[in-house]
Design a protein around this nucleic acid. Structure first.
Lengths: 191, 191
DNA sequence: TATCCTAGAGAACGCCCGTTCTCCGAAGCA
DNA sequence: TGCTTCGGAGAACGGGCGTTCTCTAGGATA
């Protein structure tokens, strides 16, 4: 099982570099240096850079989602908890926005595989939010889930480009908007 | 004034390429080919790729903002108009998300100039939205502006990674959330 | 016509990319 | 001990990058 240990080290190093500096800014040789694995082995773990990028995004999806769901699980007000969790995330030292949106912006136009992985992640998040909306008794869980998704990605993007001190403000504004959307009267069916 | 014509053609070509495919994916030689200008002149208009990228973002800021403000001006419900405008934008053939967020994700970690230009753009948008919020009689225009900014950037990001048919749904969900945020009761001052 | 200046075309430069290949030393086994 | 196999280090490859330089042809001026 040595190959897996190698793959794990490669993926850990690559994930950090890709997220912090962007995919195109990081070369395979830098991944090799950071992981302490030979180039030969790196390529036998991940046969191309694209494969490594996809693996990075897939693992990020798992970890990001389970961090969020773990934080929210059991909370009396799960939707408020989502935005609390966001506020903590925005405050982390190496926060640099949504890894999926960033990867899509960089590579979505050129890589089908990346596009797919990003879409799957957003779909999974949307499904989770829909569950939360249902659980909270929203009149239209699909609409609320879409609104929460928009608020989460929007807060993440705004926090990314803002100075660090502003991040908490952004998360709280988004949380208040989410609460407002939840308690909004149902849309008039005619329009 | 020939240089200006050249600069204009370069900038037009570069803007299209940078937005559609990403900054790093486009080489200076491709900009030269698309603009029909010699490499020598290209470099005397814009002394480096970074300068060209900054010029691209600055012009994009002007045009994007004036398209939005032009659409919204004079509307009875300016905030609803913002999300109508978004819906139209999302439906355009070459829509590929927020050029500023994309550029920041790609280059923000490595270029101070890009970071600055992106922040200026978001600041300008925030100021405009605050004006709209005040005009609409919001109790807390600063909060509402922040929420609108989050909803706009979130809808843009979600629409980018979603299939084209979903774009209108995203814009409308965001618009409804904005309306809800506007009519929300003022936050309890204690917290 | 002879001379200068301009500006365009594109070669050249040094560097980095993703990927493959070559070498060489160490470990496993007879 | 001799032979084989493995894997690590890193050179090599082909190509693209941002940027600069050279060459040349054409037009303006005298």
């Amino acid at each position: 099982m040595e190959v897996m240990e190698h793959a794990e080290r490669v993926l850990t190093a690559a994930a950090d570099l890709f997220y912090r500096r962007g995919v195109r800014a990081v070369g395979m040789d830098e991944v090799r240096a950071a992981s302490g694995v030979s180039l030969k082995r790196l390529y036998q773990c991940y046969p191309s850079k694209e494969a490594l990028v996809v693996a990075y995004l897939e693992r990020r999806d798992e970890r990001w989602m389970s961090s969020l769901t773990g934080y929210v699980a059991g909370r009396a007000d799960p939707i408020a908890a989502v935005f609390e969790w966001l506020e903590r995330w925005f405050g982390e030292d190496d926060f640099r926005g949504c890894g999926f949106v960033n990867a899509y912006g960089e590579l979505g136009a050129e890589s089908d595989a990346v596009r797919e992985v990003v879409r799957r992640h957003k779909e999974r998040l949307r499904a989770y939010l829909r569950g939360l909306a249902t659980e909270t008794g929203a009149a239209d869980p699909g609409l609320v889930a879409e609104q929460l998704l928009v608020l989460i990605d929007g807060a993440t993007a705004v926090a990314m480009v803002s100075p660090r001190e502003a991040a908490a403000t952004v998360a709280r504004a988004a949380g208040l908007a989410a609460a407002a959307a939840l308690t909004a009267p149902a849309a008039v069916p005619g329009r």
